[in-house]
């Protein structure tokens, strides 16, 4: 695992001048080539963490290495590896798309490469807008330009800080597609979001941060499996006050005509069969059956509230 990680964060703390502790001893390893989703409510410390790794903020304590280099003593090396798409759409209003993307490449010390930039703009459907000043672009287009700027110097690690905030569904799907393509090209991607859907859709691993503490890091699938209980909802034909005692061995909740059964789908016997048999035996009729898997969102809310 160790050789495989591209970013290592050790006991990272950040206390702002006013005394606010934005990060409390965060430890995290990001594997090469993965998509890592950092989830957390507003103000949890997601952006602070990214800002420190990228060099926009200073760490108060702890150490961060990128590609084996320290972010403070070897900042030129680490920053060359990183592309950052910040949360806010801050751009030079008067610059053309082409110029602003080329400017980014130059800042990172790379020789101009018009072919690469052309391909990049085409991939991001920005080619026909290349001569437009930034201020004439829509929010979604600006977001694409921000991504183009971050990719202009061919980084190995891409930080996407809330990439799809305020972006419509179609564009969001489009961006997910882009991100997957980048991963295929070997780019490590760290994205922060509070759209759980996004993490669920894309991430290999998920980290949950709340009040400056990393409370969980898991493979997404495992997390969903581990925490993902299933729920069977049965709509009964008529209201019932009480259930027959033979049903008491099941974990049931009754609310008028809605009967809910919580079960673990991973177990060999989910108990659904015997439950339904019991219902028929007791002559309790039902109209509809529905099962639900808990989403990452529910897991997330449960985790954050447990704190």
């Amino acid at each position: 695992m160790k050789n495989n990680s591209i970013i290592e964060i050790k006991q990272l703390c950040k206390t702002y001048a006013g005394g606010f502790k934005a990060l409390k001893s965060v430890n995290l390893k990001i594997n090469k080539g993965e998509i890592f989703a950092l989830l957390g409510p507003n103000g949890a410390g997601k952006t602070t963490m990214i800002s420190i790794i990228c060099g926009i903020s200073n760490p108060s304590e702890g150490q961060v290495t990128v590609g084996g280099h320290d972010i403070l003593s070897d900042y030129k090396k680490t920053r060359s590896l990183i592309g950052l798409v910040p949360q806010e759409l801050n751009t030079d209003a008067f610059e053309s798309v082409w110029n602003t993307v080329c400017f980014s490449r130059g800042l990172f010390g790379k020789k101009p490469n018009p072919q690469y930039i052309e391909q990049l703009l085409k991939d991001l459907s920005l080619w026909d807008k290349k001569d437009n000043p930034m201020m004439t672009l829509s929010g979604g287009m600006k977001r694409r330009v921000m991504i183009a700027k971050a990719l202009s110097h061919e980084p190995e690690v891409l930080f996407l800080d809330e990439p799809t905030a305020g972006v419509d569904v179609e564009l969001r799907k489009d961006m997910w597609q882009q991100v997957r393509k980048l991963r295929e090209a070997g780019v490590t991607i760290i994205l922060t979001t509070h759209y759980i859907e996004e993490a669920e859709e894309m991430a290999d691993r998920v980290g949950v941060i709340n009040q400056g503490e990393l409370i969980l890091v898991e493979e997404k699938d495992q997390l969903m499996q581990k925490m993902g209980s299933k729920k069977l909802t049965i709509e009964l034909s008529e209201n019932h006050q009480k259930l027959p005692s033979s049903l008491s061995s099941f974990n049931l909740e009754l609310n008028k005509n809605i009967l809910t059964y919580n079960f673990d789908s991973k177990k060999e016997d989910s108990g659904i069969c015997s439950l339904l048999e019991e219902l028929v035996k007791n002559n309790i009729r039902f109209n509809d059956i529905n099962t639900q898997k808990s989403s990452l969102e529910e897991i997330f809310v449960a985790l954050v509230h447990k704190q």
Binding site: C54, G55, Y75, K76, I82, E88, T91, L107, G109
Partner: peptide, 17 residues
């Protein structure tokens, strides 16, 4: 201007002293 517009982030995150 870059401080005001917020584009300073890019200069700070670039490998520049």
């Amino acid at each position: 201007l870059p401080r005001f517009a917020g584009t300073i982030y890019e200069i700070l995150s670039a490998p520049i002293s």
